[in-house]
Each structure stands twice: as structure tokens, then as C-alpha cells.
Design a protein around this nucleic acid. Structure first.
Lengths: 216, 216
DNA sequence: TAAAAAAAGGGTGTTTTTCCCCTTGCGTTG
DNA sequence: CAACGCAAGGGGAAAAACACCCTTTTTTTA
């Protein structure tokens, strides 16, 4: 790090209390400047597009945001600004999303209950070495890479069908809603029951809720 | 406020980054001191029990915490320290929980995406006037008080039945599981369909998930 | 471009769900 | 005491869900 230049950090988080407070905390470390704060991914991306040449040492990106969430933002960054170093911040330790953020280029993943000391260490580490992963996140990564190749991928039509199945409509009504023959719907149903290892529409609803295909 | 005494504030929040950062923000306002911070309700209550005579002007209480959550903590405070002024902090605006926090004595309810200006205003207001509610929260209160007297109360057996209905068991299997005749189960089903204004078992599952009768 | 795979649809039959109307027994309450 | 409510159980039938096996058409891909 050059002696007279503080590292430039950007915060993207919709919780203003957190975001503004965090800025104070970061500044209190002494070595860093928070040059911008944004309330969602969309505003952040707009800024990047309008200021492509600004030097940015680190981005702190919240995962759960309105308008454009952390994951979508991360995907954009991976496509358009892979040079940016991003640490994902989140309150939840949902494996799924952690894996996704990291495979989309996040250089670190911190929970918001991290202590300021670890936080400082993570910032330093990412800026200097390019990455920072806690043991638990590393373990998770190894675990996932080894076992989880059986990711069930559902097609768009199947997802639409599942959403409809999570209502009180009958299959016949769903068919008419989706402009398909009831027989086709029956085919979707059958293949999904098979794929998801379920036996009833109830099982389908439970699956959909658990995997956040529908929101209740 | 006495000229030489800053108001004493306690923060209860499991997110250390947030909590420590928030302390900096509050101190930056100038009029307040954060005298303690706790990671969950249990630690906070222990402190109150061991230091019953400490002067506390305001408590900032996170709703979502491990060990002992905001609501349980609020209930304890209502019982044991109703003199304390508490502002609830949360990321979500779930009506249910807002109402519950307020009916348990919270003097304010702020979302974490509140701006620091509003936040400061809320702190001042609660310390001086004893309460602070945003328009949306007030509207919610009025709305709830007026309409929501038709709270559907379910009996124990019905709850057990609903839980079983949220599996792939058939009604016949549920009946045998609950040691009841299938016809009795059919009675439960029918009366619930009636009470909950639903038409299918799918509707029952959705209701159960929405109202947290089952956890997925 | 031919083979393979997937999407859409069909036929038929079984099981489950849903609905309506009924009986019995037991406790509460007017 | 009679009336009422209600939990438990029941019959029977229509509708919906589920299962299995099949054909045709389109899309992929080797």
C-alpha cells in the first residue's frame, strides 16, 4: 500500500443505518476511505458504468437487497468488471447463496455478526492477497465441490407449472391457464414427481417452498 | 436533558459489525453514550438482573437474534422492567411481529434501512416524548386494531392434523398415525376448510406454511 | 443428417380427495 | 330436564390426483 493513499472502498447495502455506521467503522481503522455508498445493486452498477475509470480497491456488497440483489449484482460484476474485489456481506449463512456468490467471483463472504477485528483482517487480506475465506466457508466449498453434482435443474415451464401447483387450482385449471393440454400438464407432473422423488402434489408444494420457488 | 450528562443507550444486536458501527454513529451525534452492547436478549437480561439500578435512557433492540430473540426479550422487559424505553430494530416489516413488539411495550419500531437522520430523530423523540412511530407503523396499528378480531383459533388436534397434512401421507395414513378413524380426519379436514376458507389440501399446506404452523 | 432426446398429447384405470347428509354419545347450559 | 353443541364415526358418490403405457412432433446433438 502506498504511504499517502488510503484504499478506496465502496459499500452497497440497503440498510442505511448499517451502511452509514459501517462507513464510520471502516474510517476508524485509519487505512481506508469509503468513497461511495449505494442502496442497491442497480445504483452501484449505474455508477460503475458512468465512472468506468475510478480506482476501487474493494467493494462490500450486501446479499439481501431490494431492486437488484447481491447475487444479480455479483453476476453483473463477473461479466463486466471482473477486476473488482468484492466481499459479500450477509446475515444468513445459506450454503446455496454463499456458493453462488463465490462462484460468481466474490473474494470473501462475511456474516454480519463478524467481529470488527475479523472484519478488518478480511478487508486487509482481500485488498492485499485477493481473497479471504473463513474456515467454515472454505469447508463448505470443499464439501460442495466434492458431493454436489446432482443439482436438479428445472426448466422454465416446469417452474411455471410448480408455481401454479402451489395454488388451489386443479391441474385442469392450470392447463387452461398455461394454454396446454391437461395431458401435457400430467406429463410435467409425472416427470417432476420422478425427478424430485415425491409422490403427491403436497410433496411438490413442500419442495417449492423449501427451495424458494414460490414465496408465501 | 441535563447539560453535562449524555443520554445512556444500550444496543442489543447479534450482528457485531452492525452493533459496533451503530455505536460509532450514535456517538457521532454527540448527545449520546453507548454504555453497553449485547449479542442477544439473554445476555442483556442477565445484565439487567445484575445491575438493576443502572440508569438507562434507551435500549435499541434487534428483533432477529439467536439464543433469545427480540420478542421474547421484549416480553421479559414488559414484565420486569416496564420503565425501560425500547426501540425495536429489524430488517423486515412483518406486520405480525411489529404489532407484537409494540403491544409488548416497544416505544418505536425502525427498519434498518432507516436513514441516520430519521434514526437520530427517533432516538431523540423516544427519550424526550416516550414514543416514536413512523406513519406506516401507525397506519398498520390502526388497521390492525380495527379489523383483526377474527383471529382463528385452532385446537391442538387440528394443529396436529395440519402438520400431518403437510406431508405426503394420505388422510388414511394420517388417521392411523393419529389413532383416529379416517372419517374423523375427514371431519377435521372439512371443518378446517370451512374455517380457513380454503377448498383443497394444497390450500391447507399453504396456510400452514404462511402461519408458521409447520416449518419447512 | 440420422439418431437421440425432449415436448406435447392421448387412453385407461386406480386411489385419494372432496362433499353432503347421517347417527351416536357425551357434556354444557338455559 | 331438555336443548344444544360438538367430537367421533359412517355411507356413498363425484371430482381430482396419480400411475402406466402409448404416439406424434419438434429439437438437439453426435
Amino acid at each position: 500500500m502506498k504511504p499517502n493513499t488510503k484504499s478506496k472502498i465502496i459499500i452497497v447495502d440497503d440498510h442505511q443505518l448499517f451502511s452509514q455506521s459501517l462507513e464510520l467503522l471502516i474510517k476508524s481503522f485509519g487505512d481506508y476511505d469509503v468513497i461511495e455508498r449505494f442502496e442497491n445493486g442497480k445504483l452501484f452498477i449505474s455508477y460503475l458504468q458512468e465512472n468506468p475509470d475510478t480506482n476501487i480497491d474493494l467493494v462490500l456488497l450486501d446479499v439481501n437487497m431490494p431492486v437488484l440483489d447481491g447475487l444479480s449484482t455479483m453476476k453483473w460484476v463477473k461479466e463486466n468488471r471482473p477486476d473488482l474485489k468484492v466481499i459479500a456481506l450477509s446475515v444468513n449463512d445459506d450454503e446455496e447463496i454463499i456458493i453462488k456468490m463465490i462462484t460468481n467471483g466474490a473474494k470473501g463472504y462475511l456474516l454480519k455478526d463478524t467481529s470488527p477485528e475479523i472484519f478488518k483482517e478480511a478487508i486487509e487480506c482481500v485488498i492485499e492477497k485477493g481473497y479471504y475465506f473463513t474456515e467454515s466457508v472454505s469447508a463448505m466449498l470443499v464439501n460442495k465441490v466434492n458431493s454436489d453434482n446432482k443439482k436438479i435443474s428445472l426448466k422454465e415451464k416446469e417452474l411455471v407449472f410448480i408455481k401454479h401447483a402451489c395454488t388451489e387450482m386443479t391441474y385442469k385449471e392450470i392447463a387452461s391457464e398455461m394454454c396446454l393440454s391437461p395431458k401435457t400438464i400430467d406429463g410435467y407432473r409425472e416427470s417432476l414427481f420422478d425427478k424430485l422423488e415425491i409422490k403427491t402434489r403436497i410433496g411438490l408444494v413442500l419442495y417449492a417452498v423449501k427451495h424458494k420457488i414460490v414465496f408465501i
